[in-house]
Design a protein around this nucleic acid. Sequence first.
DNA 1: TAATTATTTAGCTACTAAGCTAATTAACGA
DNA 2: TCGTTAATTAGCTTAGTAGCTAAATAATTA
Lengths: 106, 106
Amino acid sequence: MAADKVFEALASRPRREILAYLSAQELTAGEIASRFAMSAPSISRHLSVLEASGLVSSERQGQFIVYRLNRDSLVNTLTGFAFEICPKAGPLKRESRKLAAKKQGA
Amino acid sequence: MAADKVFEALASRPRREILAYLSAQELTAGEIASRFAMSAPSISRHLSVLEASGLVSSERQGQFIVYRLNRDSLVNTLTGFAFEICPKAGPLKRESRKLAAKKQGA
DNA sequence: TAATTATTTAGCTACTAAGCTAATTAACGA
DNA sequence: TCGTTAATTAGCTTAGTAGCTAAATAATTA
C-alpha cells in the first residue's frame, strides 16, 4: 500500500518541515540542508525517504539535484484516508474562525 | 506540537486500521483485539499510543474499556497540515471518478 | 471470599530509524 | 587533468518501537 510509505514519511518533523519548504518552491538538496541544524547526509537520507514515498521527486540539474513537492500524492493520500475514517464528514474544510471561537467559549 | 504525536500514531498500519474500525462504532479493547491476529497486550499498546495522540478516548464501563474515535482531532490535524503544505489548494476534495479515469487514460 | 473475565503493565528480544563522520560519486571550471 | 563544490552512500552508535509471554490490576459473578 502506498499509504504505508506516505504515513511513515510524514511521521518525522524534519521531513514535514522539508515538505513545507518545498510547498513554496523547488529547492536543491543543499538549500534544504542549509535550513536545518543537521548534517547534509542526514538531510539526504530524509529526502530519499520522502522520494521513496512518492511525496517528492528529484531531478539533477548539472551539479545540483533539485527537489520538488508532489502535491497530488500528498493530497490524495490524506483525503483518501480522511474519507475512509470520516465517511460522513464530506469534503474537508478548515474550521471557520467563528465556529472555533464558539467552541472555545463553550 | 500535537501534530507530532498524531503523525507518529498514524505511522502504523494496525493503528490506522483501529481508527477505521472505530470510525464505524465504539468498541471495547477486546472487540478490537479480536479483529487482529495479534496479542491483546500488543493491541493495548497501540490503543495507548492512539490515546496519547488524542485520536481516541477511552472510558471504563464496568469490566470493559470502551474506545471511541475523536474525529475532530484527526480532521483538524490532517486539514491543518494539508493547508500548510498546499496553501493554494483550497478545501480538500476527493478526486471525481471522471477526472481519475481521464488521467488513467492519458 | 474465590474464581473468572477484561485489560493493562512489566520485561524481554529483535528490528528499524536517526544522527554523526568519513569516504565515494558526479559535475563543473581553471 | 586537477581541484572544488554538491550530493550521496557506507559504516557506526544510540535510541526507539513492535511484537511476544508472563504477571498484575480491576471488576464481575458464584
